[in-house]
Amino acid sequence: MIPTLLTLLPAASADDSSWITFDIPSLMQNFWSATFDGLTFGSIYALVALGYTLVYGVLNLINFAHSEVFIMGCYGVFFTLSFLGFGPSAPNLSVGSIIVNLLLALVVAICASALTAFLLERLAYKPLRKRNAPRLVFLITAIGASFTIQYTIFLVRGPNPEPALTMFKSRPIFEVFGTFIYDQQLIIVIAAVIMMVITERFISKSRTGRGIRAVAQDPDTATLMGVNKEKIIITTFVIGGILAGAAALFYVMKIPSGVQYNGGFILGIKAFAAAVLGGIGNVRGALLGGLLLGLIGNYGQILLGNSQWTDVVAFVVLVLVLLLRPEGILGTSLGRSKA
């Protein structure tokens, strides 16, 4: 039986000479550009991952609809910038006015994402919480909400991505190890890291942040100590939304034609994986996980020769890390972590 089945299997692949080969010279040659590109995309993952992590920390809920919170931010960027006259060509504007325009887009994106997150919490999760629904119901609701938003966008905007929006012409600004660093990469990485540091400070220092940590640690006791749990939950969702809105601006900056009804789906899964890799519920973990996931995927595909390996490598590493450290690299608890 088994030999028969084996003969039925198709030959390994059309060109099976390239099954698994390690291309080390290529990795050496492309190491630095892979690093910078990996960090750029990794910071976008990290910003989105924070949304998963914060909500998980507070509610123990994997908010699968967070990818749609993100994509609504992308639409916010798209509509704002198209309204302001941006199009497929890089605009012929002064630096100052580009900044003003982009800041406006950022504000709209943040509002769109935060509003989506807010409505999601109020319409989908709060009613369930009131009725003490089991955790599985929350998860199914999250998946349902994700599809509902995706296909509502599909019905309104159709299957094709929105036309490309070029914000500015990306230029190399300096050279490191023979590789150019582009202004776009710098803006994304530095701005994302700053936003994450601010978030981390906010959660560890501010009163609201203390409330968030208290609810994450022990919701009942936190309530007894005078923390308004409902208010903390909604704040957490909104913070996640704000970060997703910022991620949306950077994402459209990097991928001008990425605004599509299901455009957040894969990115959402990657960001969720990043959160788990770093330790879900852990703010610093999200940053670390995001950057690592971006880097590992890039190194992996160059080492193994083609882009179809990106996700294989990233997720194999994720599984290996979880085998050794089931709680993720930095551990899981938002409440206990010093963050």
């Binding site: 630096v95 900044i99 800041l103 500015f168 600004i173 202004d183 710098l186 803006i187 530095i190 601010i198």
Partner: peptide
């Protein structure tokens, strides 16, 4: 603050 930083950064870069 984050937004402003982003802006300043871009100004700096784009002037190069």
């Amino acid at each position: 603050a984050a937004a402003a930083t982003l802006g300043m950064l871009m100004a700096g870069c784009a002037n190069q």
